[in-house]
Design a protein around this nucleic acid. Structure first.
Lengths: 195, 195
DNA sequence: CCAATTCTTGACTTTACGGTCAAGATTGCG
DNA sequence: CGCAATCTTGACCGTAAAGTCAAGAATTGG
């Protein structure tokens, strides 16, 4: 018994995400968000709160999706080593094939806001910690499989892989050649200590 | 035969750099720059042009300094492998020991502006390309020294090291534990293929 | 059909932004 | 000294920012 909403929330959040992804948080104005969603100011504020709340919601959905994608890749079929290979290739393919080279929304947001918004930093920290843990678990499994040597701690290898993933993400934004980006992933994988 | 400037240009540029480093480009206002430099608006515009010009100048000085520091580390005394080790340690120490975890000004600027300012991207690209080339040259030297195996292309190893450096820079901004950051550098070094 | 409830619209307020400029201050040179 | 040249100061301008809110529109239950 009330007027129903005139928009699809998921669709609106999708447009908002694209806008923040393209421009970053600070450079995105509420007018931009109105334009891109087709919503009036009052609807936007009424449904999602202010600009920062909307941004954080967008960011939370994004990082949840990204985390799920990583988990899917690392807990999927195939041997642990194959899954690590698949993840590295998938991630670098994603970044290098994006014509705009926008990188990762969470990484961009962290770089932009780490000095101003502790809530963004804590979200970044917990997300990357979780990804690290997935990587470590997969390395451990590859070690148990006898594909990787146990001489180097799984934790250290997992962190190195995380670091390389983030390095690739960044270098993609600098416009590094796509083939070179891909080979970076191949190179770490080739250097992982085999049995 | 004219009124002399009332400020030290280098000092002003230093304050401006700190401000852009703390807040980023968009979130820094001209008022912030006035406050932090002590200059009036007219002086700022008269001496350095508009906000963007001032930013680009700041950025150019920064990346020149950073490049020189890398070159110094990679062309200094010691064996090539020792110099690579020193660079990795120096960089990760720099990032992890910064209480504010501000990361690298050039990397922050690239992440913030890559979708909006091609001039920033091209500056980033050329700087990282130059650093990559230094790394590759040092790897080649270590291979000639017989410290590193020739089985993996120096170019690939150099790019991997660049990627790890940028990964460490980023993870420092996420608040990753300092000891963990340091070990990432140690781990890549340990995995480089020895003879 | 009416009432209660929620949503939409867009005008409005306040503040801050980047940038310009005229007026006055400070210098060296002649 | 006084004039030309440069620098400083701060008022000013137009624009755009984030956020509020009152008035009207759409819906369902009674």
């Amino acid at each position: 018994m009330a007027r129903p909403r005139n928009f699809d929330e998921r669709q609106v959040l999708g447009s908002v995400r694209e806008q923040f992804w393209d421009r970053g948080y600070t450079a995105t104005s509420v007018s931009d968000l109105m334009e891109v969603t087709g919503l009036g100011k009052g609807s936007l504020y009424g449904a999602f709160g202010d600009k920062r709340q909307l941004f954080l919601r967008t960011l939370d959905e994004y990082r949840a999706e990204q985390f799920d994608a990583v988990r899917g890749a690392l807990e999927g079929p195939g041997t642990a080593l194959e899954r690590l290979t698949g993840l590295l290739e998938g991630v670098s393919d994603g970044y290098r094939n994006d014509a705009q080279r926008r990188g990762c929304l969470l990484a961009n947001s962290t770089s932009e806001l780490h000095g101003q918004d502790p809530d963004v930093v804590s979200r970044a920290r917990s997300t990357y910690q979780a990804v690290e843990d997935l990587l470590v678990a997969c390395v451990e499994e590859a070690q148990r499989d006898g594909d990787l040597d146990r001489g180097t701690e799984a934790r250290e290898l997992g962190r190195l892989l995380l670091s390389v993933l983030q390095g690739i993400e960044f270098l993609a934004k600098t416009g590094m050649d796509g083939a070179a980006l891909k080979r970076i992933g191949n190179t770490v994988l080739a250097l992982l200590p085999r049995t």
